[in-house]
Design a protein around this nucleic acid. Structure first.
Lengths: 215, 215
DNA sequence: GTCTATATACAGATAGAC
DNA sequence: GTCTATCTGTATATAGAC
């Protein structure tokens, strides 16, 4: 039965609201890019999730790559905002490290697509869109923090770059590998549920802290 | 200047050697799948790298997915072989953990495409091709090892599943994020060179061991 | 600002000669 | 067993009506 009333389920009608539409597109694109990367994402799929037509993506963002950059930009801004809330310099190194990982993982819990997106960015796009900036916002504060811990004698001697990378790794790998590791737990468990996230955060912090403290 | 002699550089001539050709295709496919995943990989690119035509991929492996499965199969076999060389049960928990990570990272050094491939497998394919098997070979031995350490009183109380995942994470993230993190070091450094790999391995083992030992 | 319809390019896959 | 040529589907992107 064709006709205007038989339209199949769309997320919402065509609400002629530019900002809302842009946001909805970005939200859908973020999910799609997180799943397939720039290469694997399909503009048609993004449009379908959004509830607008493909043409709108091009109207607002020029092309697929422009949309991708907008997603990265927004993701980066969010991450920065979340991490800058914690004042690392007012805390002792160990407490600062705990606070940093906690804030980082809370942010990942809210914005679950970021680890995969940044991962894709490195592996599929050779970091050509964002590695410099992501590094400055995420890794350098951590490296500085570790250096401060070493200087104060609380942390062991270490290569701060490698350790910083490994700490981000042990914190984010869980979110990037969920589908590979879910069989470790009982079937149907929600790895993103509050209890599991808390468990993961707790273990991640313990591992990170114990891994850098002087024996 | 057309003609049979002006053929542009191919990896090798058409050597009518089935096994060699299959191996060459698998090698090239592994690189391509590691870079783009099942979705992003291009059969044309694989053929170009191999030096045979696209038709050969289909002749030997049926379709793209068949080739992908063959790559996974071979990668899995290699990983199993590398990990089973170390006899975990004959070592004390701490030494076993060191040996396990060392063997794992040595294998990653030899076979550099695996972390990315398994990562893609989880994130892009929802682990539908391999998560069960990869889990059995990689995570369960580690979980058992951690449990043994807890039982013996040498390791702290922990959630062995989370800790195992985090240990694999801190060990592999480096290889999956190279292009994102390379700016932490001086320009042009080879993150896969022997010195850097040794540094990474050393730090990874220290972090993993310190993270599980009883204080 | 949003949609429908379509142009253009390219990727996966196959047929058939050699 | 390998290649060339090609079919077919699908993806990005655009033109133009509303």
């Amino acid at each position: 039965m064709p006709g205007p009333a038989s339209k199949t389920e769309k997320q919402s009608p065509a609400t002629r609201d530019p900002e809302a539409t842009k946001t909805r597109i970005l939200d859908a694109a973020e999910v799609e890019f997180a799943q397939g990367g720039l290469l694997g994402a399909r503009t048609e799929a993004i449009a379908a999730k959004t509830g607008v037509t493909k043409a709108m993506l091009y109207y607002y963002f020029g092309d697929k790559e422009g949309l991708y950059l907008a997603v990265l930009e927004r993701a980066y801004t969010r991450r920065m905002a979340a991490l800058q809330k914690v004042d690392l310099h007012s805390l002792e190194p160990e407490q600062a490290l705990r606070a940093f990982i906690s804030a980082f993982l809370d942010e990942v819990g809210v914005n679950r697509n970021l680890p995969a997106i940044f991962f894709y960015e490195g592996i599929q796009n050779q970091g050509r869109f964002y590695s410099q900036i992501a590094m400055q916002s995420l890794y350098m504060p951590l490296v500085d923090l570790l250096q401060r811990g070493m200087d104060s004698g609380k942390f062991r001697q270490m290569n701060t770059f490698h350790v910083a990378v490994n700490i981000i790794g042990l914190s984010t790998f869980y979110f990037c590998s969920m589908e590979n590791i879910k069989h470790l737990w009982e079937p149907g468990i929600d790895l993103l549920g509050p209890e599991m996230r808390e468990q993961h955060k707790s273990e991640a912090i313990q591992q990170a802290v114990a891994g850098v403290l002087k024996l």
